[in-house]
Amino acid sequence: MAATAHFLTPSLTQLTLLAKEQEIGSGTGFFVKHGTQWFIVSNWHVFSGRNPRTGQPRHSSCAIPDECIAVKREMRDHRLVVIKHKLKLLDENENPLWLDHPEHGQNVDIAALKVNQNTVGIARNILSVDGHQEDMFVDLGGDLFIPGYPQGYSEQGSFPIWKKATLATSPEFDPLPINPLIVDTASREGMSGSPCLAICNDSYYRKVDGGPKMELIHKPICWKLLGVYSGRLTAKDALDTQLGRVWRTALIIDIISGCQCARPKLI
């Protein structure tokens, strides 16, 4: 796991949400690329600052984020340098610059913000076909990883914390992309927007022609992005079920390929 985790770590960024220059929250994002366009993917509720079920502001002051600070990493003189970028979330008319799902809108808790190459640094595309193996079989109860920034915590000031999870519902039992997967993990604020990953450093199994037979594929440093983690099902206290939602990768593809920007729907 360690080799692939180190390989993917530059692809994650902590997100600090700002409203009129004041910090109002934090989350996690990760870099993906569609064609020549780069995006930071996170949750709808992170970029909008609203509850996706009610449309109401999540912050106690009702402030809505208009900017965020993202982190990129570069190599300079054989040293790793961490650089912070301030990115606009709203235009001059307070319309969102991020994209939501072209059909389901806020009912899918994913959003993607277009960024230019200068914001990416040495990040790798988590959806790159060189590493992301869509056909990797992940069994019910299989090990997963959700790297992010719980309660804003990071390693050495910018590196994510790699938290473990297990797959609690099977994609095979519920193949509809609109229905989120459920994972068993102990998460905290700041993890919203994290990628949910199955990781392999040497080999993985895949189904043969969609049937019950499996074959072993040897490939170093590979992974499968299952989707975007959006927080726990319930969060009343620390003894809750510790189950979380993961919105599936197919929905990310819908957003970054459809490129339809929508104003948050106020309910």
Rank of each mutant, 00 (worst) to 15 (best):
A235T: 04
G25E: 09
S11V: 09
Q117S: 14
A186K: 06
Q133P: 05
T54M: 05
V115M: 11
Y229D: 09
N107A: 12
A186C: 07
G227E: 06
L97C: 04
S257P: 03
D130F: 10
T9L: 02
I24Y: 01
I252P: 08
C62D: 15
T166Q: 13
I221Y: 05
A63I: 00
G231P: 10
G49Q: 08
I256Y: 05
R58A: 02
L144W: 09
V246N: 11
V138F: 06
I267V: 07
I161K: 14
F47H: 02
L99R: 02
Q133C: 14
S154D: 13
P65F: 09
D202I: 07
N179P: 00
G227N: 03
I255Y: 03
L216C: 13
P160H: 06
E189L: 10
D66A: 03
A186R: 14
I256P: 08
S170Q: 08
S203W: 12
A165H: 09
A5L: 13
Y204P: 06
A5G: 08
Y205P: 00
E23V: 12
I217F: 01
L89H: 01
E74A: 08
D100N: 11
M191N: 15
R53Q: 14
H101L: 08
D66T: 07
G244W: 01
A70K: 00
H45M: 02
V183C: 11
G25W: 05
S48G: 09
R79K: 15
V108D: 04
Q14Y: 14
A186Y: 05
S158A: 13
H6W: 04
I161Y: 11
N201S: 15
G148C: 03
E134V: 11
G27I: 04
E172M: 09
C68S: 08
R58G: 06
M75H: 09
D184K: 09
S60M: 12
Q156G: 00
P160L: 09
V32R: 02
V183I: 11
